[in-house]
């Protein structure tokens, strides 16, 4: 009886959700026209990248800050354990990881470059680089990370700092993150390169700082 009531109410909920979806009012404002109209001045030819890095640049700036804060919180939570030696994996897996890593780096650079004119960009490139780091760690080729030293700290904060420096430099013109159209393409590529490196280190850090826990005894 109870199960029957649960199934009935769940079906009712699904039905009302579907009905709401079908009766969805059209969006009050349509931004596709303005986005397409100003694409030439944005420095890139892919609308998603133009929105992320140019029209709504400060959203991306704050997103990077949030990711950095999340990593800082993780660093604060995991204390100060001893060095973690990863258990050496099967030789086949190690060889595969060694072969796959250069390919993943090439794919990441391609995604970064392709972001200007087709789907891709800093987030995807950073995620692929981070995945390469995690793969190397799982294969036992890359030890887990200790408390970050200066070089790693610079790498982690570099993308955000670069983005902030560009924003601060452009503040002289009066508006935050309003690129001059002639320089927009180069500035976006510069910011995205920094972001790719920092995002890769941050995302890999989520894994490598946490996984320094006990390994096989």
């Amino acid at each position: 009886m109870k199960r029957f009531a649960v199934i009935c109410s769940a079906l009712l909920f699904v039905g009302s959700l579907a009905a709401a979806m079908l009766e969805l009012a059209p969006a009050a404002i349509d931004l596709r026209g303005p986005v397409a109209a100003h694409l030439a001045a944005s420095g890139v030819s892919h609308p998603v990248t133009a929105v992320l890095l140019n029209y709504r640049g400060y959203d991306t700036l704050l997103e990077i800050a949030v990711l950095l804060l999340a990593l800082l919180a993780i660093l604060a939570v995991v204390g100060e354990p001893g060095a973690a030696r990863p258990a050496p994996a099967h030789p086949v897996l190690q060889t595969l990881a060694r072969l796959a890593t250069p390919l993943m780096i090439v794919v990441a650079v391609y995604l970064l470059w392709a972001g200007a004119f087709r789907p891709g960009g800093a987030f995807q490139a950073g995620a692929v680089l981070a995945a390469a780091g995690v793969l190397l760690h799982l294969a036992g080729l890359l030890p887990g990370w200790q408390t970050p030293r200066l070089r790693l700290r610079l790498g982690l904060a570099g993308g955000f700092a670069l983005f902030l420096a560009v924003a601060g430099g452009l503040l002289a013109q009066g508006t935050l993150l309003q690129y001059p159209p002639a320089l927009a393409g180069g500035l976006i590529l510069l910011i995205e390169s920094g972001l790719t490196l920092s995002l890769a280190l941050t995302l890999a850090g989520l894994f490598l700082f946490l996984s320094r826990d006990e390994v096989a005894p």
């Binding site: 789907p119 995807q124 995620a127 692929v128 981070a130 995945a131 995302l203 989520l206």
Partner: peptide, 10 residues
């Protein structure tokens, strides 16, 4: 792309 790399992979 983001879903495959972050959602599924990481």
């Amino acid at each position: 792309l983001a879903e495959a790399a972050i959602g599924a992979g990481l």
